[in-house]
């Protein structure tokens, strides 16, 4: 199955959080690999987005949108390091 990268999450995540998340450094809860969320492997043919670690391929983030709400599942991320400047 083909994937794109986390850049495609820029719009959907900005819609939820109001800031850019692609430059946020996420640490994979499974393997500890840390990189910009833009580098995640994103599978978007599911009903929503499933973003996997480029190193170990475990799920880091899931995002599903309903007409009125967005569900963000971040259980695969140990931490998020957010640039403030």
């Amino acid at each position: 199955m083909t994937y794109v990268d986390g850049n495609v999450l820029a719009g959907p995540l900005a819609e939820v959080f109001g800031v850019d998340f692609t430059a946020v450094t996420g640490t994979c809860a499974s393997c500890g690999f840390a990189a910009a969320l833009a580098t995640l492997r994103v599978y978007s043919t599911a009903p929503g987005f499933v973003a996997r670690c480029p190193s170990c391929e475990e799920v880091v983030l899931r995002l599903v949108r309903t007409p009125t709400e967005a569900w963000v599942d971040l259980r695969g991320a140990r931490s998020l390091r957010v640039p403030l400047t």
Partner: peptide
Amino acid sequence: LRGPVGGWF
């Protein structure tokens, strides 16, 4: 249209 989005690339 919405944006701009993306702060990494």
